[in-house]
Design a protein around this nucleic acid. Structure first.
Length: 216
DNA sequence: GTGACGATAATCT
DNA sequence: GATTATCGTCACA
């Protein structure tokens, strides 16, 4: 296994959530699917979530669900939301300090057919042609494409079910942009969303300022 | 291209 | 009982 594919060590995650989030861009996310087949791609969009002082974070309050965010780094935190979607986070910071990074989008690199199949009709255009930018361009989309559900909550991010690898990262600052977090209750949109603006696989097009319709 | 809306269940209060 | 770190579809431009 080359360096670019080998799982990142737990020490990668045992840093501040913000630093890990930034460093995650350009890394690769991999998933072992039945077959066995490996599917995954390059991380192009993430968001940092903190602890007690971050009202948008599940760790704002310490509950059974958020307990994992207070635990040791290098594990997956998967939660279920809106009655139908799972979202994947990586737990950061040393044990005792809460923090996690939400993986919001990846560029498919491998196992593209398998991922598209799991995404169903949304992965194809009217002519039946593959839409690469619609497969993993959102936190709920990528978990569907990679068959990530609550069974993976707490999984070790060194594999074998799911892992992150060095990939091409870390990316130079010129390739990275920081924006407010999206999908958050107004007032908590910290500038903690890290993206690769050149990517065609982001959850929102660059410059899209669509406000959330949630009430105050 | 944009914006509104409903689906649907785990988790929390 | 209320909320939700979302998505696909629909109407309209």
């Amino acid at each position: 296994m080359s360096t670019a594919q080998r799982p990142l060590p737990h020490s990668f995650y045992r840093r501040s959530t913000e630093v890990v989030a930034r460093d995650l861009l350009g890394r690769d996310l991999w998933r072992l699917l039945p077959g066995p087949r490996i599917a995954g791609g390059r991380i192009v969009e993430v968001e940092a979530y903190f602890g007690h002082e971050d009202p948008a974070s599940h760790a704002y309050r310490r509950t059974p669900r958020s307990e994992i965010m207070y635990g040791p780094p290098g594990l997956a935190y998967v939660y279920f939301t809106y009655g139908m979607h799972c979202c994947l986070n990586v737990v950061c910071e040393p044990g005792g300090t809460a923090g996690a990074v939400l993986i919001r989008a990846i560029e498919p690199k491998r196992g593209i057919e398998e991922m598209a199949e799991r995404r169903g009709a949304a992965a194809f255009n009217r002519k039946g042609r593959l839409r690469l930018g619609a497969i993993c361009s959102g936190p709920g989309k990528l978990t569907q494409a990679l068959a990530i559900d609550l069974a993976l909550n707490g999984a070790d991010l060194r594999g074998p079910e799911i892992w992150l690898s060095e990939g091409e990262g870390p990316l130079p600052d010129a390739k990275v942009e920081i924006t407010p977090r999206v999908g958050i209750r107004r007032g908590a949109e910290l500038p903690a969303r890290f993206i690769v603006p050149d990517s065609p696989c982001l959850s929102r097009r660059s410059g899209s300022t669509r406000l959330d319709r949630r009430r105050s």
